[in-house]
Computed example of a mutant assay.
Amino acid sequence: MKTLVIHAAIIGLLAPSAALAAYPERPIEMIVPAPAGGGTDTAARKLATILEDRLGTSIAILNVAGGGGSVGATQFMRAKSDGYTLFSTWNSPLTTVPQVQKVAYDINSFTPIASTSETAYTLCVKADFPAATGQAFLDELKANPDKYTYGNDGIGGTMQLAAERIFQAKGVKAVAIPFGGAGETLQNFLGGHIDIYGGSISPVIPYVQSGEAKCLIVTSAAPVAALPDAAGLAELGLGSEETLLWRAILGPKDMDPAQVETLTTAIRAAVNTPEYVEFLATRGETPNVITGDALARRLAEEYDGLARAAKALGLGN
C-alpha cells in the first residue's frame, strides 16, 4: 500500500513536466497586426501552414489591423502567457510606430522568439535621372537641396526614417511625400508625381526589368542580388545606418522558456524548408532566423537608430 502511495506521488510530481513536454496540446492563435492579403499576412499564413505540420496542431490567423500595427500589438500584449497566442509581425509596429505615436507597449513587452525573414527597402529613380550609381545619386541630391521629392510609407514610417538616416549622414535634403504604402508610392512614382520611389523591393522589380526605373540604393549594408545596380550602404560608408524590413514571431511577456525553445526549433526548421525559401525568393526576401537575446538586441539597436532619425526630423510622440 505504501508503495502505491509513493508511486502516485511520483506520478503527480511528473505530471506538470509531462504536460509541458506535450506542448502544444491544443490549437494556437497567431495575431497578425495587418489586413488579410498583405505582405505580412501572406508571409504569416504560409509559415503557419508549415509550422502546423511540425508542431502537430492547427494555427489560426487573427488579423488585427490599425495604427500601423499598434492595434494588433496592443491586443496581443494583453494575451495570456500560456504559449497559445503568438504575434507574427514586421518590425515597424515595434521599432518605428512608438517613435511617432503613443502606444501601450514597448520592445520589452514581448518575449522574442525568432525572426523569420528580411529584405531591404530601396530608393529608385526614372531611367533619365542624372545619376547612375548610389554615390552619384547622393551627390545629385546634395547639390540640389530640397529639389527632389521622395515617396515613402507615411510620416514617421519606416521607409522615411530609413531614408533620413542615409540623407542625414550625407548632408542631403529631399522632400518627403507620404503615401499609404509601397503600392501607392509606386503608382505616384510611375505617374511622375514624385521623383524618387522609396519602398519595398518586390513591387518595383518589374519596372527595373523593363528599364523604366533604376534602383540606386538599398537600405541594407550589403547589396541585394535582385537589384544588381543598387549600392549597399557599406559601399557608401553607411553600413551602420542599415534599416531592413524584417519579420518575426514573438510571444507574450514571461512566456515559459521551454515553450519558447519548442517554437524556436520549429520556426528555424520551417523557415529553412525549400518550400518557404522559394516562397520568400519570389518576394525579394531571404530567410534569417535570429532568436532569443540576439533578437532582443536587434530590436533595441534598431529602435535607438530610428529614434535618432525621428528626433532629427522633429518627430516624436
Results as ranks from 00 to 15, higher is better:
A258Y: 09
D146S: 13
A176C: 04
A9C: 10
A143Y: 15
L20C: 06
M159T: 10
Q75D: 13
T243R: 15
V175N: 10
P287T: 07
N317H: 11
A221I: 07
T89S: 08
S58Q: 00
I201K: 11
T149G: 12
T57E: 07
L295G: 07
A19I: 02
F279C: 09
A136V: 06
Y84S: 02
A131P: 02
L161W: 05
Y197S: 06
V172K: 04
T243Y: 14
D53M: 14
K142I: 05
L280R: 09
S115E: 01
G198I: 04
N144C: 12
A19Y: 12
A222V: 06
F179W: 15
I155M: 06
E212Q: 14
G56V: 14
T57P: 06
G237F: 14
T85P: 00
G180M: 02
P206D: 02
L250A: 04
G183S: 09
G316F: 03
P257H: 04
E118S: 15
V224I: 01
E302A: 07
D304T: 12
A182W: 03
P274W: 03
K46W: 12
W246F: 12
I107M: 04
G69W: 02
D41H: 14
T273Y: 14
A131Q: 08
S210V: 15
Y197I: 02
P178A: 13
K46E: 11
G292E: 00
F137N: 09
I31S: 00
V260G: 03
T158N: 03
K311S: 15
E25L: 10
I6C: 11
V208L: 08
T282M: 14
I11R: 13
A234P: 05
Y303S: 15
G198F: 10
T158A: 02
G292I: 00
P145R: 11
A225M: 11
G39F: 07
Q75I: 10
T40S: 01
A60V: 08
Q187I: 04
D254P: 12
T85K: 00
F87G: 10
I113N: 04
D153P: 01
D146E: 09
G239R: 08
A226Y: 10
I59E: 08
G83Q: 07
Y23T: 02
G157P: 12
Q168W: 15
Y121R: 07
R78F: 14
S81P: 06
I166S: 00
R54W: 15
N188L: 02
A79V: 01
S220K: 03
D293G: 06
A174V: 07
G314P: 10
S17T: 11
D53G: 13
K102H: 13
